[in-house]
């Protein structure tokens, strides 16, 4: 491990009310790599990834201790604006959540709220993002149709395109394929591998095969603890902790 890591959590503890959801999490996310977080449901993996762009703040009665760094800067410091962090760290959610607007507006929205007014620029960026998200060919003739008319898989890729338009540095995926069919899932996975060239990616998944397919590094969460974190091949071929092995071989979870 070296200085070039993109994000890093340091002794992170997180509580819902009095219940501890995360215990002493230390995890690094390397640039231009895909980091997968796996574990049984309720292990805190989604909770953790939401800390990385401070989405946790939307939930009341929670406490967070520890530090989370983005490019060496502690993003939990009170002087840091969460809005600014969310511009740099984008997020794709479990269920596709397009806005009830048309396809074009869905993507331009992120630019407009970041005070970009130049029409030409916005148009170019919309096309570029749709192309990057491998959605352009499917929607280029109906950019002004409601995004809600797209299929589930298309909606999810639209959400990815929407994220890309803001040009974040890190992309967080919170079980992006949980509600998708196998074909859409494959498309999203291919997309993630493609995006890795330009972005740092963290993905939460309960699907181990998915983690094996797309990620370079994998962290295994259990009951709010990070049990093991290593190169994906190592985790899947020769895990050090027996609990990781039990999970990966399907003995529980």
């Amino acid at each position: 491990m070296d200085d070039s890591m993109k994000m890093c959590s340091e002794n992170v503890n997180f509580f819902y009310g009095r219940q501890q959801a995360l215990k002493e999490i230390n995890l690094n996310i390397l640039p231009n790599k895909v980091t997968a977080i796996i574990g049984p449901s309720g292990c805190g993996k989604s909770t953790f990834i939401r800390l990385l762009n401070r989405m946790n703040e939307l939930v009341p009665h929670t406490t967070l201790t520890g530090r989370i760094y983005l490019d060496g800067q502690d993003i939990l410091m009170p002087c840091v604006d969460p809005v600014e962090i969310r511009r740099r760290v984008g997020m794709v959610f479990q269920k596709p959540n397009p806005f009830p607007k048309n396809i074009f507006e869905n993507i331009s929205y992120g630019l407009e709220v970041n005070s970009i007014r130049n029409k030409r620029f916005i148009e170019e960026r919309v096309v570029e993002s749709l192309k990057k998200a491998a959605l352009w060919d499917e929607v280029k003739d109906r950019l002004y149709d409601s995004a809600l008319n797209l299929s589930g898989g298309q909606q999810q890729r639209l959400c990815i395109a929407r994220c890309l338009a803001v040009k974040p540095e890190v992309l967080l995926f919170d079980e992006p394929c949980a509600s998708l069919d196998p074909i859409s899932t494959r498309k999203v996975e291919e997309l993630i591998l493609e995006l890795k060239k330009d972005y740092t990616i963290a993905i939460v998944t309960h699907n181990m095969q998915q983690a094996a397919r797309v990620s370079d590094y994998t962290g295994f969460f259990l009951l709010g603890e990070l049990i093991e974190f290593d190169k994906t091949e190592k985790i899947f071929k020769a895990p050090e902790d027996h609990r990781t092995e039990d999970y990966i071989t399907g003995r529980f979870g």
Binding site: M5, E10, Y69, G72, V80, D81, E84
Partner: peptide
């Protein structure tokens, strides 16, 4: 952990400078 070796120089003071523009928005 490795993050401890990060340049801690970018502490509060530079943080303030960087986000002064955001201050009005907040």
């Amino acid at each position: 952990m490795a993050c401890l070796s990060w340049k801690r120089g970018r502490g509060p003071s530079s943080c303030r400078a960087q986000f002064l523009g955001e201050h009005m928005a907040r």
